[in-house]
Design a protein around this nucleic acid. Structure first.
Lengths: 213, 213
DNA sequence: ACGAATTTGACATGATGATGTGATTGACAA
DNA sequence: TTGTCAATCACATCATCATGTCAAATTCGT
């Protein structure tokens, strides 16, 4: 018989050092019981068959071999409907954060966070709450705020070009739309890429969709 | 001379008991300095003229006489651009929460929260972070998740490839990631484009970000 | 065991994209 | 008046993408 007052936790983490310290810490906490671990999503799911205990909380790394932690959220929730996913990672950019949340993660915690706080976060999500690291929570609230977009000093013209590119247009189409030479568009794109520190259309589109410009 | 290491806090709260206990607690914390208080938005703003100190953080009640705390956020931010607004309230319904966030609040805390945690929250927002009570954070993450999955007819492998492309990878990088030939990736992409009736990477990324697959 | 769907791969070609160097023009500020 | 900056355009070159045609190996359901 499983003690329902004890939180059943699973951990998916490929770094031994991190996994070991998490295990060691939780082993000392009587209210937490680590029932299952894995080095990757695939590893975890394949070995999940033989388990009879269902985790309440899954502590999930993002940078995993094979399927990424974020892409792994869906299969994990399929295997364990209603499980609480806690992302534990070093990636703190908006892109990763929002993709994780959209996939159904309920907490997103920086690996900088102390073990004590991670333990607290687990207890919080097990009770139906959610915990976010301060810097991450700030990015999330920033999503809602009317945001005075002061960010990327992009020129009016540059924003115009970005808008067309994001719509899926080619350089040629943008040039025609704006009635300028395709070389002009190229020139603008080069400057935009340099200013945004990116080097592909894909990244530009992603940034745009994440409101990062 | 104002000590910049000390957080300048203002409090707007109409309940004497609450205000007094907040003041008493913060008076004991050397890193917090309460510079201004008010019983209402109007009261606070009118008496703000005579003050020379600018608050870093404003602790704001929602249920105030006159202008509500939420409607007061805009004028407060106009008076003190860049100030961090911390909502402290008993209202925990989604409506109040999201209206406050949209108005520019960066933290939303239940009045059930201990004075200790409220103090922590103030320090967190002063450092550029954000803190949410667990139950409130859960409602916020819930805002992102309710994505109804209408999976397109794409194959597992195809979805894998789309995921990598959307991350900004080139065909070559995708091929390497999946340990297949670049021609195989090309082949998949061709099929994906035909099935989705698109013809550019940009459109693929757009559809992906719009949850259209 | 048969056929359909999936996955893999090769070869080819024209279009588009990424990046560099360099030049001209007009606007606005020091 | 002299800069700086935004916007315009011209080459140039190599990488990547979009598309086509064809085909072998694999998986899977009936």
């Amino acid at each position: 018989m499983i003690d329902l007052t004890v939180i059943q936790v699973a951990i998916i983490e490929d770094e031994r050092v991190v996994l070991d310290s998490l295990m060691a810490f939780m082993g000392k906490d009587p209210s937490i019981n680590v029932v299952h671990t894995g080095y990757s999503i695939e590893d975890f799911l394949s070995s999940a068959k033989g388990k009879k205990t269902t985790p309440n909380v899954i502590l999930l790394d993002v940078n995993l071999p094979g399927i990424s932690g974020i892409d792994g959220i869906a299969p994990l929730k399929k295997q364990y409907p209603g499980v609480n996913i806690v992302i534990l990672t070093t990636f703190e950019d908006s892109d990763h954060i929002f993709r994780a949340l959209k996939a159904g993660a309920c907490s997103y915690i920086s690996k900088q966070t102390s073990l004590l706080l991670i333990g607290e976060a687990i207890k919080i999500v097990a009770k139906g709450g959610a915990y976010m690291s301060p810097a991450i929570a700030r990015k999330i609230v920033g999503y809602f705020a009317p945001e005075k977009k002061k960010p990327k000093n992009l020129t009016e013209r540059q924003n115009e070009i970005v808008a067309l590119i994001v719509e899926g247009k080619s350089y040629k189409m943008v040039a025609d739309s704006l009635c300028v030479s395709i070389d002009t568009v190229r020139s603008h794109i080069k400057n935009i890429y340099r200013q945004l520190e990116i080097n592909s259309k894909a990244e530009l589109i992603r940034k745009s969709y994440n409101g990062e410009l």
